[in-house]
């Protein structure tokens, strides 16, 4: 079975989805990512969907689940590069992906994610005082 590669960049996990995933592959990615957050002690997850031609409710749910799981594991999730026709279709379908951060592209996403990580670390430090 194919696998979607997960890269570690600094404190961040980077995933680029480049193929039309079938449902089991999407489930596997969700499991792999959740495990990787724990094993690599990542503080952020960046998912690049710029190559995706469609996101249906199943993939939408996978993204939401990843975001919720990573929040529990103290990491932030950001979805980047969603294309206009995909975004319009998702909204029409009724999928809001609330609770997920978004950014235009990988660059902006990494910028946002490091800012969010810094913020959460500084509040942690404040809490330690």
């Amino acid at each position: 079975m194919d696998k979607i590669p997960i890269l570690k960049v600094g404190k961040c996990l980077l995933v680029t989805i480049q193929i039309d995933m079938h449902d089991r592959l999407a489930m596997a990615l969700q499991d792999d990512l959740t495990n990787a957050i724990v094993t690599s002690r990542a503080k952020g997850v960046l998912i690049d969907v710029s190559a995706l031609e469609i996101v249906d409710s199943f993939i939408g749910r996978m993204l939401s689940n990843i975001a919720s799981a990573s929040r529990v594991l103290d990491a932030v999730t950001i979805v980047v590069g969603m294309r206009p026709h995909v975004a319009i279709t998702l909204v029409e379908l009724g999928v809001q992906l609330s609770g997920i951060q978004t950014a235009r592209n990988v660059d902006k996403g990494l910028e946002t994610i490091s800012r969010l990580i810094e913020q959460s670390e500084s509040t942690d430090a404040y809490g330690d005082d």
Binding site: G81, A87, V91, A103
Partner: peptide
């Protein structure tokens, strides 16, 4: 909807 779609795209 427009605002929601723009948000999904990161704007």
């Amino acid at each position: 909807k427009t605002v929601a779609a723009a948000r999904l795209m990161g704007a």
